[in-house]
């Protein structure tokens, strides 16, 4: 942590990325935190206000370690509510971009492609709201050099929209909501008791 006017502080780095410009306007009112559902639903340590603070205070390592950096899905519910009109997700995305550049890894279970069955129709790439999916030529065992979808874990937010549009069930997110888990849950309930075959 330093306030020395060094040429490129962490805050400067963030501000240099479009979206991160106005981070220093934050006066910590907490609207963004209470607008966001991640703290309540997913991760108690999640707090965009504090991440902004970390940026302002040049706390680079802490920012990279913060779950906020990795869990923000850029839904922008907070942005229209911010009285200082800071594009909060823009700041967080900027931090994430720098973190990924410097070797940071997302804590999310990002989407995975089954290269054996992927036919590279490109629907997932079209559906992905984060532009995390691209189609690449790659060598796949038993199939040779074929084009398949590839997920950029630095961009994927594990929403699973790709899995919903895939006709051949070739892409999925290995989190708590896999097709397998969902269907087990469903069948567990629909199976009437005492029926055996």
């Amino acid at each position: 942590m330093s306030h020395s006017g060094s040429s490129q502080s962490f805050a400067d780095e963030v501000k240099a990325i479009p979206g991160g410009e106005f981070v220093e306007l934050c006066f910590s009112c907490g609207t963004c935190v209470s607008k966001c559902m991640i703290q309540q639903k997913l991760e108690p340590e999640y707090n965009p206000r504090r991440l902004l603070r970390m940026v302002i205070m040049d706390m680079k390592e802490d920012a990279f370690d913060s779950p906020t950096t990795w869990l923000c899905s850029a839904c922008d519910l907070c942005y229209p509510a911010c009285p200082q009109q800071i594009h909060i997700s823009g700041v967080i995305t900027a931090v994430k971009e720098i973190a990924v550049e410097q070797g940071g890894k997302t804590t999310l279970k990002t989407a995975a492609v089954d290269q054996q069955t992927c036919v590279s129709c490109g629907l997932c790439a079209e559906a992905c709201p984060y532009e995390a999916i691209s189609l690449v030529q790659t060598k796949v065992p038993y199939r040779g050099l074929v084009q398949v979808a590839q997920v950029d874990p630095g961009k994927c937010m594990a929403c699973g929209l790709c899995s919903a549009v895939c006709r051949s069930t070739s892409i999925g997110v290995p989190d708590d909501y896999t097709d397998k888990a969902l269907m087990e849950n469903l069948w567990d309930w629909l199976q009437p008791e005492g029926v055996t075959f």
Partner: peptide
């Protein structure tokens, strides 16, 4: 029966 999903966009017609 509750089937939680990460987003309604994740629900496949097969579900």
């Amino acid at each position: 029966r509750l089937m939680k999903v990460s987003c309604t966009g994740r629900i496949n017609t097969l579900h």
